[in-house]
Amino acid sequence: MPEITVDTAVEITDLRFSWAPGKPILSVEKFQVPSSESVFIRGPSGSGKSTLLNLLGGVIKPDSGSIKLLGQDITGLKASQVDHFRADHTGYIFQQFNLLPYLSVIENILLPCQFSKKRSLKAQEMFQTPEMGALYLLQRMGFTESLINAKSVLELSTGQQQRVAAARALLGAPELVVADEPTSALDSDHRDQFIELILEQCRAQSSTLLFVSHDTSLEKHFDHRISLKPSQAGGYKL
């Protein structure tokens, strides 16, 4: 499969989504993110953030409009194709409790490479083995050896857990990294530090970062900023 090289990582056009007819939840006229750049998407709770992320993940389909990721319109793909596409090209970081408690730090980070051959191969290209990649990323995230060898990921602090989750989202250099309120459980000192770490890695491996949060104090870090606003037609629009 040839490497996808497009300048636009995300392109949403004329999108409409509603759970029930006549009750629009989200509409997006035009939303574009250039490759390798970072976007801060601001939205209060209930503004359709999760809906937007689910649409971008292909978990739900829009009523109309198109969502192009890396030049591929995912609205036309079958569920299993979307699953493959997402596993190969997107890394996710969520709010909290991102890790499987029964796996070690390294095992957690390696999970995406278990499910995506593409990401596994990319990690091998960059670091010889995915394990080496995981160790490299952990080191970049400021992990000491004793922390890496922690018996359980539950021994780690929330901030440390979020950094493991970030390393996991980044391993295998997916073209897209989606972060959904990843800093909400961190105190303010750690927030900026954490965001800088992610941004630095995204830049280093040319990943496009979509960062969703309600906290406007964070938006200064990003290349682009955009808000989800109430729409006259009902619901929210981007």
Partner: peptide, 16 residues
């Protein structure tokens, strides 16, 4: 549910 969601987010398909 959380475990399943985490697995889904790291690329596990429903069949997994």
């Amino acid at each position: 549910r959380r475990e399943m969601a985490i697995l889904r987010s790291v690329g596990a398909r429903p069949v997994h």
